[in-house]
């Protein structure tokens, strides 16, 4: 099975193809000069990418082959005075597609060609006046769907918290009990939580993993409550958390505090749990053990359908493992700052 690794950066997207995940062919840059902020796959198999520019704003694009792209005419756009700054995530669900954006909100489209319509139950939530941007902006950066109950959805908003819908996206409710608050509001105590990454356990959709600003957390009740689950992790801070759909292993890339945001101990290391976040262990053979200072942003780590793990760094390097993180390989490239990574098995 062929694998296509899509890497979105500050200055374009880069595609790597392989038939054996040993030898990779790098293709010519796409979206040259544009930030490429999100990549996903539509229900019909097409690919959907989000681009952005400080001059021209964000756009959504569609492709059949990850090579030829066409901009979507009726992409996400606010009509209520808010500003669409960036598309952070594109998620296909059983009923359609969600785009998570900054300023924080969701847009939904049955067909990725649009029209993309705002999701008022989240975008105009009663707590909205208390939503404040974090360092990465006010962004809805992750959407998850319960695979056995499409009415149940989660959305993570940085510096605001996790919201859950139990009615197919009509209404949304903050789900942050057990997580320390990062930015307390005088009135709305149910928001102000800084979720950085969110993943659903592939074997049990009531279990979620949450890389928060203030630690790694796990929920075993669909997000109703959260427990600090950092045994073995060297730091609480970090951005991505991703789950392997086959093995159930979960991966994270801890960083030394929000003050430093650097790998711990001058060494790059991915941490893995195989017991639902009861314990984490470092998996780093093949990564820089000395002088490794590259960070990994929230959208820049991914697991494919064949248990391959991939991540791209703020230093523009791309790393992957086909051994559950035991051994890592680095692609022979040096790219702009990496914003999103996704591997597709074709």
């Amino acid at each position: 099975m062929a694998t296509a690794l899509f890497v979105g950066t500050d200055k374009g997207a880069f595609l790597f193809r392989s038939h054996d995940r040993v030898h990779w062919q790098q293709e010519a840059p796409q979206f040259k000069g544009w930030k490429v902020t999100a990549i996903g796959r539509a229900r019909d198999g097409r690919f959907v990418a989000g681009s952005a520019s400080h001059v021209y704003g964000p756009l959504l694009h569609l492709s059949d082959d990850l090579t030829r792209w066409s901009a979507v005419d009726q992409g996400p756009r606010y009509t209520n005075g808010r500003k669409l700054e960036q598309i952070w995530t594109i998620t296909a669900t059983q009923r359609g597609h969600y785009a998570g954006v900054a300023e924080a909100g969701l847009f939904f489209a049955v067909d990725p060609e649009g029209p993309w319509v705002a999701v008022p139950g989240l975008n105009d939530h009663p707590t909205r006046p208390a939503w404040q941007p974090g360092l990465g902006g006010l962004c809805a950066h992750v959407v998850l769907e319960n695979p056995v109950n499409p009415d149940q959805l989660w959305c993570g908003i940085s510096a605001v918290g996790v919201f859950r819908s139990d009615d197919g996206g009509e209404s949304w409710h903050p789900k942050n009990r057990g997580v320390p608050i990062a930015i307390p509001d005088k009135e709305h105590k149910e928001v102000g939580f800084c979720v950085h990454g969110l993943a659903l356990d592939p074997r049990d959709p009531s279990v979620l993993y949450r890389q928060d600003h203030l630690g790694m957390f796990r929920s075993t009740d669909s997000g109703d409550s959260w427990q600090h689950s950092n045994a073995g992790l060297p730091a609480d801070f970090g951005f991505p958390v991703v789950a392997d759909p086959h093995t159930g292993a979960v991966y994270a890339y801890p960083l030394e505090s929000d003050e430093y945001r650097l790998p711990m101990g001058d060494a790059m290391a991915v941490y893995r749990t195989t017991d639902q976040a009861q314990s984490w262990v470092a998996r780093g053979q093949g990564l820089a053990h000395e002088g490794g200072y590259a960070s990994v942003l929230r959208g820049s780590m991914a697991v494919d359908d064949q248990s391959g793990i991939y991540f791209g760094t703020t230093a523009g390097t791309v790393h992957y493992s086909t051994s559950g993180g035991d051994v890592w390989h680095q692609l022979p490239c040096l790219l702009p700052r990496i914003l999103c990574v996704k591997a597709f098995n074709l």
Partner: peptide, 19 residues
């Protein structure tokens, strides 16, 4: 060319600040 509408104009229909 509809994608240019979003690229050139902001949500208020005004030419983007850096265009």
């Amino acid at each position: 060319h509809p994608p240019l509408e979003q690229a050139l104009f902001d949500e208020a229909g005004v030419l983007r600040a850096h265009v």
